[in-house]
């Protein structure tokens, strides 16, 4: 009785966590490596580069209000081509020659998780 309950808890735990872990872990690592330096470890816009000289605050990805103004395509474009491509600050770098297309798509999905929001059409 005790044993089977333990196993079923284990099974539930395993199935609920492992597949998404495997998938989102590397995206998380990509985010932490390239984006966290400005956008912060948890995406709130307070990365280590944001000193008093930093002219424009990096987007806070946990703000549903701000992030829902952007469509998924807007987000992907600004990631690949940088701030100026969307009339935003040049402090947002162009990552198009650094990230693969698939990595950019995964980042868009990751940012949607952080804001817990949907994009504008």
């Amino acid at each position: 009785m005790f044993k089977s309950r333990f196993i079923s808890i284990l099974l539930v735990f395993f199935f609920s966590t492992s597949p998404s872990f495997a998938a989102s872990d590397s995206t998380k690592q990509v985010f932490k490596f390239y984006c966290a330096q400005c956008h912060g470890d948890t995406g709130t816009g307070d990365g280590v580069n944001v000193t008093e000289d930093f002219a424009t605050e990096p987007r806070n990805f946990t703000s549903g209000k701000e992030m829902s103004k952007l469509s998924d395509a807007d987000i992907k474009n600004v990631i690949m081509d940088g701030g100026p491509s969307a009339s935003k600050s040049a402090l947002m770098p162009p990552w198009g020659k650094t990230l693969t297309d698939a990595q950019a798509d995964e980042l868009v999905a990751y940012l949607r998780e952080l804001c817990n929001c949907k994009g504008a059409e």
């Binding site: 330096q37 400005c38 580069n49 000193t51 000289d53 770098p93």
Partner: peptide
């Protein structure tokens, strides 16, 4: 380009400007 966002560089009058990463 965002070079100064991530790199320290010399500003006016010896002031250290720029980012940290």
């Amino acid at each position: 380009m965002p070079c100064g966002g991530c790199h320290q560089y010399p500003g006016r009058k010896g002031k250290i400007m720029g980012g940290m990463s």
